[in-house]
Design a protein around this nucleic acid. Sequence first.
DNA 1: TTTTAAACGAGACGGTACGTCCCGTCTTGAT
DNA 2: ATCAAGACGGGACGTACCGTCTCGTTTAAAA
Lengths: 204, 204, 204, 204
Amino acid sequence: MTTQRMSSSNASRRNEASRRAILTAAFELVQEVGYAKLSIESIAARAGVGKQTIYRWWPSKGAVLFDAFLLMLGEQADTGEPALPDTGDLEADLKTVLRATIEELNDPRYDEPMRALNTEIVHDPALAALYSERLDGPMREMKKRRLRSAQRAGQLAEDLDLDVAVEMVWGPLLNRWLQRSGALTPEYADSLVETALSGLRPRH
Amino acid sequence: MTTQRMSSSNASRRNEASRRAILTAAFELVQEVGYAKLSIESIAARAGVGKQTIYRWWPSKGAVLFDAFLLMLGEQADTGEPALPDTGDLEADLKTVLRATIEELNDPRYDEPMRALNTEIVHDPALAALYSERLDGPMREMKKRRLRSAQRAGQLAEDLDLDVAVEMVWGPLLNRWLQRSGALTPEYADSLVETALSGLRPRH
Amino acid sequence: MTTQRMSSSNASRRNEASRRAILTAAFELVQEVGYAKLSIESIAARAGVGKQTIYRWWPSKGAVLFDAFLLMLGEQADTGEPALPDTGDLEADLKTVLRATIEELNDPRYDEPMRALNTEIVHDPALAALYSERLDGPMREMKKRRLRSAQRAGQLAEDLDLDVAVEMVWGPLLNRWLQRSGALTPEYADSLVETALSGLRPRH
Amino acid sequence: MTTQRMSSSNASRRNEASRRAILTAAFELVQEVGYAKLSIESIAARAGVGKQTIYRWWPSKGAVLFDAFLLMLGEQADTGEPALPDTGDLEADLKTVLRATIEELNDPRYDEPMRALNTEIVHDPALAALYSERLDGPMREMKKRRLRSAQRAGQLAEDLDLDVAVEMVWGPLLNRWLQRSGALTPEYADSLVETALSGLRPRH
DNA sequence: TTTTAAACGAGACGGTACGTCCCGTCTTGAT
DNA sequence: ATCAAGACGGGACGTACCGTCTCGTTTAAAA
């Protein structure tokens, strides 16, 4: 796993083909059978790999899944420093981004693996830390960059806590998706952005 | 399980003592060993009950846990129509409530079981529906009642979508707790309420 | 079961229809699924009877089967004092009887139930006693009567132990059938009778 | 199981210590609790072995017991070509052998396991074939060798079917033991041998 | 004829064992 | 010398039945 790979010179010995086969198999299987029924044995079988090869490099099923996720994300977009669109119109940019996120969440290809990752994090602090460092951290930083830009342009309150701001825009969306407590529509994205920007109180 | 109990006259045959023993055992065990290591066998053993008695009445481990939760909640507060405090000062009332929620989430007695319930819901739509109907629904209604009261008093925007409003106040909190993406402090509660009420944009 | 029925005046209350339904179901089921997979539950279900009705009247699965056997045998021939044919020609008569026995043993309708009964007896001394008293005893007596008749006619050795004689004629047959250690043909019946009567040693 | 061991090079992977522990445990347990209450779980527990290790190598409880039997027999006497005593006096030799057999059958150490094996054979043709090949076959051959020797010496009828002869001497004994239809005494052994050799008919 | 106690069908219950799956570790044979 | 293949001890799964125990409901005897 990532952690071990960092600390070990054995990593040089590592068979990259096996690593990719394992991660690909894990990602496919979690879509097919769901996280609960995903087993190390089935991953090894699908990948054509001995079980020990998985146990050697990853500490848990969740860690495999995490790396699988990283691999899949990395493949589609690994373009250095990522950024949110910045047209100068914050509201429009956020709506664009949230609508895109909603589309991704509705994509059955990613639904089950992402749910799996999110719930694994809830129970596994080690994985949560990894997630925070490698996935959520960079994403949050990217979001905060866009908000800071708007803040400098006077479009956001000067004393705004950007972490709270990020959570207020993206948190409700994630919750609604995970709990299926409501439909994820483009209109919802718009409503969310408008309400977050203007606040619940009447203006004027 | 709840669903089955509703639809069946067999329920009259049901042994209430066993039912309570099972739910109590489940609630205790999930605290002690965590959800991942919670087994039907251990619940049955602790409850002094045959496994079949669990399988007979509940469709899944998650459903047992859900009913266990309901039992525990029902015991401490089953006072008809629940309500949020309403002093007339919405901001103060919401801060009070969120601070209380944070205290509850930090209580180790409820931490593990609530995490378990929340993640079960993510993977099990049937359980999610049940959760929505029996737990989240009533709570959400209670929250919306308080917001509606404020809206009538002119403290909230007239065209506000109350569902979005509820999610914007409580969603970030839930996420931060589940993902451990930040500390849950009373200050955070205050900040959340203030930001949600005023919005991200500068006022004036 | 037989034993209990004898000792109790409760028997008067007994539902004869249920009794027959149980025995019939048991006999059918042992043919269909074999003795190992025959369960009290399945007998009760097939007979349309509560399990308790079986447990009330029989002490074991083997006892049910035994009574089922008795019922089936009794139906086809319950003609008071049974007897082996006695034409005066012992050898011919025995061959006739053994050939008939072989045909019965080869009848798939009786094969499985009879195997079941025979093996039950091996492990259950109580049932063995019952078997000895109600089935084997009368049959053996019948066989001995025929042999005694021949003995009086000077066709058998005067000092012959009739029990040993019976066992020597019928025992090998039963063994061969139970252990499938050889084909059960009419020729075998003949050979058995001839060898038993003449002995292994050369005559003269 | 024996069959599988023969056909497979996987057997090389097999843990011989586990195999012996399983067979020993099975043999002990069948003595202690009887065949009906002998469970795979208890064998595995006693042997300190996972259940799967039993299911992996044996197709049935009976097959385990059979191998256990083979192991126990093999340990006490695995001396190549076994033979019955041949003093030239067939009657005396047979009496010696039957008396010894009776002693063995009366030995509580072997009683329950042997009953178990014998009844398993009755219901399981595959096991019966194995039994015939590995245990009954060699024994029967040994018995026939002794009879053939006597036949050459003119002590047995020239046209005697040796299989029938073997069954006539040993069959009644086995039956009496299994069905408990009479006492197994040395006198019975003598009587059996004398009657079989001389036949039921009066001589002269 | 009514009462009343049992036998009855149904099936829930605490248990035991089943045979299967997978865990994480350990061993082996082929490359 | 590495690694796929897979055996191993172990634990839990979900199912089938065990034998016991209520439940109401017949049903046949005693009153």
